[in-house]
Amino acid sequence: MDFLKILNLLEERDPEMSDRLNTRRQALKDFANLGKKLSMAAVPVAMGSMFQKAYGQSTATVVDVLNYALTLEYLEYRFYEKALASTGLIPTGAPNGAITTIMNHEKAHVDFLKQAITSAGGTPVAEPTFDFSGGQGTGNGPFASAFSNYQLFLAVAQALEDTGVRAYKGQAGNLVKQNAVLTAALNIHSVEARHASHIRQMRKANGASVKPWITGKESGIDNSVVQAIYNGEENTTQGEVNITSLGSISANVASEAFDEPLTKEQVLAVATLFLAS
């Protein structure tokens, strides 16, 4: 395959391409960077990423991603804020300390994202009005007693944290050329995963049958709404690789070892239940 010829052809058909590619020299440099060991199977992926520089993400898309993240962070922050304000819900000591730590992180994420959106030239979304019962504004959703029932509170917290992890993961590919935003998003993503792990340990200490990681698509929560958040986590094939075929790795281990992303549409389908307006 003659890549120089392909680039020339593309340039003839789309003269503005080189401007978007920065310069053709840059494109060639990028291609040189790919390395001589590149297998042919990897070439389309490599070519795709190179041309994404020319036809890639606009600032508008980045702001969209950040506003989407901001909406979810508002949801988490206000959920924990309300829980901590609910007298007698969270035991004093370690549980109260942990939830306070998590709430403070979610609030910091809200502030950070608002600032990031503004500096990217965008406008932060207005904070939604939430219905934490999951009833879309009726107040009578399946989690209506989450602020008086500690077990249910922890279950919703787990669902929200695991959703957050999947939501950020689902946006990583959209930020592949936005290094600063990508790194920030990754640095929030792993903090959400730390939260999820701890909440799961809190649930386990209260008798729930869960581990810090997700086994198959088990939520450990008996609720069909919540199940949508876990569907797909049972995946055992990564890239082209069937993990269970690599020695003696069970399907449970293969699913636990990799967390799965959710698309924006999948996340919003769940998050909408918590929106009152």
Binding site: V45, A46, G48, S49, M50, Q52, V165, Y168, K169, A172, G173, N174, V176, N179, L182, T183, L186, H189, S190, V191, E192, A193, R194, H195, A196, S197, H198, R200, Q201, P212, W213, Q238, G239, E256, A257, F258, D259, E260, P261
Partner: peptide
């Protein structure tokens, strides 16, 4: 930030959150 392929980036994301669960 060094990854150029969106697929590889997502794969790294699938692993790092599990490492974060371990760490916690």
């Amino acid at each position: 930030r060094f990854i150029t392929s969106p697929d590889y980036l997502t794969l790294a994301g699938k692993i790092v959150s599990v490492e974060a669960r371990h760490a916690a």
